[in-house]
Amino acid sequence: MIEFSNVNKKYDHDVVALEDINIKIEKGEFVFLVGPSGSGKSTFLKLMVKEEEATSGSIIVNNTNINKLKQKDIPYLRRKIGFVFQDFRLLYDRTVAENIIFALRVVEATEKDIKYQVKSVLELVGLSGKENFYPNQLSGGEQQRISLARALATKPPIIIADEPTGNLDPKTADEIFKTLLDINARGTTILVVTHAKDIVDGLNKRVIALDHGKVVRDDARGGYVK
């Protein structure tokens, strides 16, 4: 599903962001990506969606070699990856339903699909009945659920969550992870970048640790620290 082979990324002035990365994530896996700030986690995600180009090495996402991907095909790669951000990135002048419809319009879904998907993803994240609320009328946890619902609406095979619970209290964070596990159980590959030690330790899933741009640990079932 996701395969990095000998990937290096250098920024200007020879700043090394990633060095000789070899990672393979299979379809349906649930993976934590951990590491201190500046360890290369964000660069890893940016390379996956081709927001940045690798300096060398090959990257395959959902059977597509993205090194060879043309500029005009990038949107279609991104449709295969649902993104959940730490700061939710919602449209605050639109209702919950409209935020999800927005994503479905982008992928040019049909009217019938839009109606069905909005109902279905809101049910999945536990926001049924909140369709007509504006994000600001809801709690932080609920806002992150909107963001999750939006990422799921287009039925991507991969979900990337970048610090999804960074702004949430522990109880709400637990609920978000429960939802992520539910989604994973349905076959979606999930990659979570997080600093939430307790959750990583508690779930006992695969953990990939980065430090100074290198993979320092890849445990099939691990904790936040070794």
Partner: peptide, 16 residues
Amino acid sequence: KREIYIMRYIGATNSF
């Protein structure tokens, strides 16, 4: 700007 940023991440084409 915010909409455009989100659109790009969701996979909106340039023409969209």
